[in-house]
Design a protein around this nucleic acid. Structure first.
Lengths: 207, 207
DNA sequence: TAATTTATGTCAGCTCATGACATGTGACAA
DNA sequence: TTGTCACATGTCATGAGCTGACATAAATTA
């Protein structure tokens, strides 16, 4: 009886259907060129209902992205306090990928599609950056808390900014996604982390 | 005959008037709360005309930001080829501030206003990040050219990303802007550059 | 002054997004 | 099973951002 009830299941189903329909349409004819009405029609739902699931047209493409961010924050909260800030953040970044690796096949496909659409749509890219930036504030707060530094200390800002930069470079500019590029993505991320590690002085992230 | 002609002068005047009116309204009542019609009315111009000057409502707030980006690119192009990538980029970042310091008083006030509005408006912040990212592609291309590295080389991506990160941290989170915070801005930027310098291994930005 | 260019105004229309209210469908207890 | 309640959805109306088409007014040039 772990089942969440018919109502809830229907909602989840509609939600995923909306995401899938939206991503397919975005890939086919572009983000700007597809209307909310089209997405709603594809799922056989009123346009008004679309906006009950997603606040904006943007959101439907970025919802998975958000899950990743949350996973990152959650992982950071779990890291032991002795770990140096950047090490902890590295693990948090990796968590985004490992989380995906445990997912459904359909879910992974969905994520890769979303990534492709976002990469090819400036408006969506901007939106994703905005979310990254908002997430960054929380990361900074958490790092500052761990390290007991003041609010106007530059270091936490810099460390977090560097970590998100690494994540960004790692996730960006991957070759055209094939069937399951998750492995390639993970490899690229590791390469970027290694590059960062090798570029920085030991102990740089602690005063 | 150095004069650009009445027509051109009028256009520049209208353009600046639109920017000023928009920024003032954004500061007063918030970005989302002010309509294009209001901005147009404040300058006594039809709403349609507004969109002939700025493609979107966002653009009117971000136009100055764009000038800075262009200055950065221009400065990078001027830097001597022997200079290591990150050093060249540092100077390019500084150019954004020095350019402002040579500007009109009104222009500087405009810039500071714009910065304040952008910082307090997620939507605008996202837009500015998008432009930064688009600019980043050009910076990467230029660095790759200087260094003669291939298109899939991680290093140029990383170096440029780090430079824009420094710029971002340097420009962000300044205390509430007073009359002319340009000096404070410059100081903060220098502090961030110093922090980066001190965190990185010598020669990290060259293979 | 006349002819040509071009900035602006007007209007009509599309899409995104939201509030208000009605309706239908699952949840749950008697 | 049935009846009630909660809530997901549909319908309608509205406003804001943005664009195309065409007319008008102003500046430039001859």
């Amino acid at each position: 009886m772990g089942q969440p009830g018919l109502r809830e299941r229907k909602k989840q189903k509609t939600r995923l259907a909306l995401i899938d329909a939206a991503l397919d349409l975005f890939l086919e004819q572009g983000y700007e060129a597809t209307t909310v009405d089209q997405i709603a029609a594809a799922v056989d739902v009123s346009p008004r209902t679309f906006f009950r699931y997603f606040a904006t047209k943007e959101d439907v493409a970025l919802s998975l992205h958000v899950d990743g961010q949350e996973a990152m924050l959650a992982e950071l909260a779990c890291r032991p306090g002795e770990e140096s800030p950047f090490t902890a953040l590295s693990h948090a970044v990796r968590a985004m990928v490992t989380m995906l690796e445990e997912e459904d096949l359909a879910e992974r496909a969905r994520f890769l599609k979303a990534r492709e659409v976002i990469d090819n749509t400036p408006a969506l890219f901007a939106g994703s950056m905005r979310r990254v930036m908002e997430n960054e504030r929380q990361l900074i707060a958490e790092i500052a808390r761990r390290e007991g530094s003041g609010g106007d200390d530059l270091l936490p800002h810099f460390v977090v900014a560097l970590a998100t930069t690494v994540a960004r470079v790692g996730f960006e500019f991957c070759p055209p996604t094939g069937v399951d590029d998750l492995a390639a993505l993970a490899a690229r991320l590791e390469a970027t982390l290694a590059l960062a590690e090798r570029s920085l002085r030991p102990g740089w992230d602690r005063p």
